[in-house]
Design a protein around this nucleic acid. Structure first.
Lengths: 149, 149
DNA sequence: GGCCCTTGGTTGTAGAGTGCAACCAGCGCA
DNA sequence: TGCGCTGGTTGCACTCTACAACCAAGGGCC
């Protein structure tokens, strides 16, 4: 209500969103690596998705995260060599491999999740619940919009 | 187990913020590269900073963006070879080089800025001015909090 | 002045992450 | 049976990055 809707308001906000998201993106990888060297940002994300979904195919991961299938193949290979992921050949279709976190994978995932949650929690400690909820909703909305690209 | 972060939506929101920011970060580089192959995300950011600041030292760029000085050195080298940045030796201290965008650098920066703004603008087209403003404010607040890490 | 420490910057090296293209292996349909 | 499609791997090339070793120029301090 008290928000003035001048034409310049939109542009300034868009500009700012752009700058801040970019700034965040630039730092995310390094921060993640510093925090838990044993599981890169990408590995964490993939493993996390496997955990949430209760397993899926490499192709699904590629589609979900807009990665090349070769990249996924290598990442999964690394996770497997590290003993964090196991593959099951689908009995109905011998082309597909169902990927699942191993117990060790689930364990380390839980640890990293805790430490990530703590870090994010600290950063967001003095935010009100309402602000957190709104911020989350905005991010979801934004990502939903970019998923089509 | 029996509690889905009921005590507060806080945890759920923090989790979501975490996930969405991570998801964004993972895509940012690729998206930027696809949009303007001539200027990577990092190069764009560095050049942009030089433009805003009216020039600065390589060390300043490294500090600002939490990059190793060798990385900055190489990035700046590439920008210079591309004719987008020029160096001037500081007359007061012959160790330092003041970096400045060339006219060509300013030109391409302007173009990329326009195309970035258009892309972000499209994604955010159906957002109300109030939502944009709030989203921008949240992002600024978040980044401000992480800058201390 | 001469020595030493600090600061700004470059280069050598190594490794992660990535995409593209070529390839192989099952599947399904005509 | 043959052909095209789908899931996945591998070879290759490239970028981004950090760390370490290095060089060059200040700035104190004796």
């Amino acid at each position: 209500m008290a928000e003035p809707d001048r034409p310049s308001g939109r542009d300034a906000a868009v500009e700012s969103i752009q700058r801040e998201l970019t700034s965040f993106a630039r730092r995310a990888r390094a921060t993640a690596a510093r925090m838990h060297p044993e599981l890169s940002l990408v590995s964490f994300t993939l493993l996390s998705h496997l955990d949430e979904q209760g397993g899926c195919r490499a192709t699904d991961l590629a589609a979900q995260f807009a990665l090349d299938k070769s990249t996924v193949s290598r990442q999964v290979g690394a996770l497997e060599r590290a003993g964090l992921v196991m593959r099951r050949v689908d009995p109905d279709d011998h082309r597909v491999q169902v990927l699942l976190p191993t117990p060790a994978g689930a364990e380390i995932l839980a640890q990293v999740t805790v430490s990530r949650r703590r870090m994010f929690g600290e950063r967001l400690a003095d935010w009100s619940a309402q602000d957190l909820t709104r911020f989350a909703a905005y991010l979801e909305r934004y990502n939903e919009a970019s998923r089509e690209d």
